[in-house]
Nucleic acid binder design. Structure first.
Lengths: 218, 218
DNA sequence: TTCGCCAATTGTGTATACACTGATGTGAAA
DNA sequence: TTTCACATCAGTGTATACACAATTGGCGAA
């Protein structure tokens, strides 16, 4: 494995986990020393983070971890809606129905509210759904755009961990989406995705700002 | 200006223009020598091209300019539809109406079919519309996703240059979109964008398919 | 005391040397 | 003649040295 890849994975993980807090200055020398590699691969890794939008060059000499707050989550979900609704529509039109029927069954059998280990299994199921969606859409431009969105989404997940009720509802929503794709119903797939993302965003924002639930929250 | 930025702009431009044809091997040593800089900034530039999807690492030692054919254009427009329809919808809901009213007037006054210089002025007008859209949407995730799409779109423009009738129709379509945003009509803005992108794609594909010139038409 | 200038330090940007890996070509043996 | 093995080479990945710019601290003058 290349040192630059190692540096990128490490820094990415630390930013997603919040260990490298927003505003933290990413100095090449400092990070290279900390990671035990030279400046060259460190520089490449930071460059990739900047391209991802996880870091930003404030000036030619100062690169910092980007901020990520409730407003960013709202904006992130605007793009996520655009991409995932279209993806669901396309997947319903051309995806492997068998695969999504199996996914629907897996969602039906999932009980993420039963315990922490089940919740982790649920997140793996989500990842499996994402991968199936990418395969079904079969469009590298979509996959790349969604990869960036998912990279940022990991930061949101840390800010607002799903509670049990939300996990249970999320399972049902995903089950409906998978069933819609499996039955080749593009409109239902898109609208069910819209509903799911609306609820997911509302749950996150409610948890972040308990006293001021966002507009449209039920 | 940094040497790495210079290298990136140069290589990007050459790929978009087709001077660096798909499949061309991008060797660090070779490109560094050609551009008159060292391997370090060249390496950074090629890395950015790979991140953009304009180049791909086939193996640890071989990086090539990615292919771009009619199928890619179709896939590109799938994502473009998803992003631009949503953008238009959001812009109509929250954009600066004054600015889009002015844009609508500019489109109404444009006559790109009258000559080559007018066509260039039209493409600048499109760029102005894109910039206004980004400002109106006010969402860095959207802007970044669209930036990548537009980067690839430049390659499509080279493969299929718009003809006069298409330019005239495109102006009218953009005028309608701008008016819809100016009047705060999200649904019309989204649907007019859908229609525009449908027609734009159809025009490109029609121009590409009749003769099907393989590559290297120059 | 404050403002301005100069020097020093710090950190990035670039060049280059070295290391390692994968490929290719040549030679010898079967 | 063909095949296998070894050596050479080409090209990337990494480390490091050097150059340059910006920022900061100190010192002097107003």
């Amino acid at each position: 494995m290349r040192a630059s890849d190692l540096a990128y994975s490490t820094l990415l993980d630390e930013i997603q986990r919040g260990e490298l807090a927003p505003g933290t200055v990413l100095g090449e020398v400092e990070q290279a020393a900390r990671l035990g590699i030279s400046r060259t691969p460190t520089r490449a890794a930071i460059g990739r983070l900047v391209a991802d939008g996880l870091a930003a060059q404030l000036s030619p000499r100062i690169t910092v971890v980007t901020d990520f707050d409730a407003g960013d989550i709202k904006r992130l979900f605007e793009v996520r809606r655009a991409l995932e609704e279209s993806s669901a529509r396309l997947a319903a039109a051309r995806g492997d129905r068998e695969e999504f029927a199996e996914l629907a069954q897996a969602f039906a059998a999932a009980h993420p509210e039963a315990g922490e280990s089940n919740a982790d299994a649920y997140y793996e199921l989500i990842a499996r759904y994402d991968a199936a969606l990418d395969r079904a859409v079969d469009n590298a431009y979509f996959t790349n755009a969604l990869r960036t969105i998912r990279t940022h989404l990991a930061r949101a997940r840390r800010l607002a961990r799903d509670n049990r009720e939300r996990l249970r509802a999320s399972v049902a929503e995903h089950q409906l989406i998978a069933e819609a794709i499996a039955s080749g119903d593009p409109e239902l797939a898109a609208h069910a995705t819209h509903v799911h993302l609306h609820n997911a965003l509302a749950a996150i924002l409610t948890q972040l700002e308990p006293r001021t639930p966002p507009e449209g929250t039920q």
